[in-house]
C-alpha cells in the first residue's frame, strides 16, 4: 500500500510531525498557519490506521458509508479529504456535535439511525459505494456488515474495526478476531489485518473486498 491518501499530510505541529487534513477544526485540535488541522490518532481509528499501515486505498471523491460516526471526529477528516460520507450514528446524543461538524462540510451527510436496520436509511444512502467503514461497539459487528453490504459496489471494500471487548469481554481478543473473520468469510474476502494495539487496545482492523 502507498503511504497516505490524497488530502492527508504529515505536518509539523510543535516538535512532532502529525497527520493532518484541511478544514474547520471541530474538537479543539491544533491548526497550523495554512489551515491544516491535526488528525488525532488516539481519537480516531482510521487516523491510527493511516499512521501505522498507510493508505488502504481511499480515493478523493469516493462514496463512503460510515457506521458508528459517534460525534463525527473521524468522518470530519474523511470529508476534508474530499470523500462523500454517509455518517450513521445510533445515539441521538451525538446529534448536537454532528450538527456542528457538518455545518462546514457539504458532502458529509449525518444520519441518526440504527445500523442493524439499514432499511431505515435506504431513502437517503445511495448504492454503489466504494467503502463501508464500520466502527461500532456492538456484539453484532458481523451481522451489521452483512446487512449493509447491498450499499456497496461490486468492487466495494470493507474496513471494519473489531472491538474484541464488545463482542465477547471474556474471550481472548485473538479468538474473537478469528471468529469474526470466519463469520465474515461468506460475504467479504479479507485482504489485510492490522492490529491497533498501539493506540486502541484489543482492536483489530480488517480490510476486505466484497464477494
Amino acid at each position: 500500500m502507498s503511504d497516505l491518501p490524497e488530502g492527508v499530510e504529515r505536518r509539523r505541529f510543535g516538535d512532532r510531525r502529525r497527520l493532518a487534513t484541511r478544514g474547520e477544526p471541530v474538537y479543539g485540535e491544533p491548526v497550523d498557519a495554512s489551515g491544516w488541522r491535526v488528525w488525532d490518532t488516539n481519537r480516531s481509528k482510521v487516523g491510527a490506521l493511516l499512521q501505522t499501515h498507510g493508505d488502504p486505498g481511499f480515493d478523493h471523491a469516493s462514496r463512503v458509508l460510515y457506521l458508528g460516526a459517534a460525534t463525527g471526529t473521524t468522518v470530519s477528516h474523511l470529508a476534508d479529504m474530499g470523500m462523500y460520507v454517509y455518517a450513521v450514528e445510533l445515539s441521538p446524543y451525538a446529534a448536537d456535535s454532528l450538527l456542528a461538524v457538518t455545518a462546514s462540510r457539504p458532502r458529509l451527510f449525518p444520519i441518526i439511525a440504527d445500523a442493524r436496520q439499514p432499511a431505515a436509511y435506504s431513502d437517503v444512502v445511495e448504492g454503489q459505494l466504494a467503502w463501508m467503514i464500520q466502527d461500532v461497539a456492538s456484539a453484532q459487528q458481523v451481522q451489521i456488515a452483512v446487512a449493509n453490504r447491498h450499499y456497496l459496489a461490486d468492487d466495494g471494500q470493507l474496513l471494519l474495526f473489531i472491538k474484541a471487548r464488545s463482542i465477547d469481554a471474556t474471550a481472548e481478543p485473538a479468538a474473537v478476531f478469528s471468529a469474526v473473520e470466519a463469520q465474515l468469510a461468506d460475504s467479504f474476502e479479507i485482504t489485510a489485518r492490522v492490529d491497533m494495539d498501539a493506540t486502541h487496545r484489543d482492536h483489530r482492523a480488517l480490510i476486505g473486498q466484497i464477494r
Partner: peptide, 20 residues
Amino acid sequence: YYDALHDHLRDRLRAEVQAL
C-alpha cells in the same frame, strides 16, 4: 441533489436535537 440532501439531513438532525 447532494446540496439538498445535506440541508435535509441537517434539518432532521436539528429536529432530533430539539426532541432530545
